[in-house]
Design a protein around this nucleic acid. Sequence first.
RNA 1: GGCGAGGUAGCGAAGCGGUCAAACGCAGCAGACUGUAAAUCUGUCGCCCUAGCGGCUUCGAAGGUUCGAGUCCUUCCCUCGCCA
Length: 318
Amino acid sequence: MARPVVAILGPTATGKSALALSVAERYDGEIVNCDSTAVYRGFDIGTDKVLPAARRGIPHHLIDVVDPSEEYTAAQYARDAARAIREIRARGRLAIVAGGTGFYYRALTRGLFPGPGRDAVLRGRLELIASRRGVQFLHRMLLRFDKESARRIQPRDVKRIVRALEVFFLTGRPITAHFAATRSEIPDLEIVPIGLRLPADQTSDRVTRRVHQQFERGLLDEIRRLLAKGVPKDARPFGGLVYRQALEHLHGVRDEPSTRALIAQENRRYARRQLIWFRKEPNLRWFAGPGESASTIVAVNRLLDECLKGTGGETTSP
RNA sequence: GGCGAGGUAGCGAAGCGGUCAAACGCAGCAGACUGUAAAUCUGUCGCCCUAGCGGCUUCGAAGGUUCGAGUCCUUCCCUCGCCA
């Protein structure tokens, strides 16, 4: 009864999606996406979404759930993912969270403090101040109202400074004072987190190959199509990896070969940040990828057999 | 062959006699992250170490001037523009 939730995490291009599919087929599961950009409709090629035809009948959740002009957030994800997981479990199936957005995964499994979300008007005002009088000015403001946050947040980190001030102005209490109330969205569920990783040079090769494939598959046309459909150039997903650089190319910032190279480079850096993040994730069981390789699948299956079947499945983690 | 510009750390690029191991940008490396996270931000970045206003070797090459030279002089090598 106490069947855990499986999570498949790790840097980009390690084969998470493939592994998730294989696990889903073997253990009667459904997949819950944990990628911050795949939630957006229409952004398919650059996010390397597993397209419906390739899903082998396995239900995928939290892919294509919002319009590109909408703002999706970690908090929203945590709620949506928790709901999806409960529904999957209610169907008696295995929930498999798969993706590389560490912050979303943490928001789901450890939670975000219960407090106010983004306030567009307030943020607009704060950002205006930042652009007119400098970020440092905002940081000094934060120092007045919330000394502790000012200490932990870098004086130039606009996003965090704005959020801290936003929370303070909205609640009258420093953001750090809210942290104690943080709780997981799924405190009752056990999770078996699996991490996939590859040596840096392999990641680099795979990433480079993937970028070329993305262009060959029509990345640029996809972007043109989105723009033609009225998706604003400053839509959230356009600001991220792949799309940002490709969009710049369409605007003539640089030629295609160097754009491909730049995207591959950014991917490598992103993979590094992901690794740093996931390394700190407790209880993560690392496997040498790639996720589609038979040896990885065998090793993962061995672990899951232990955790999902027999008595192993009844352990509950603290 | 003649004239002009230039050769500085992985790359690009400052520097024009001392406080230069050498600004700055990029890449690299290390890291932070509680509602934009594929985002945002930080540190480090010649070599050595007991990590310091520490030691050592650098600024195309070789000489020279000077108390002191990326910085001035001479010769040489190499690039790149114009003329032939």
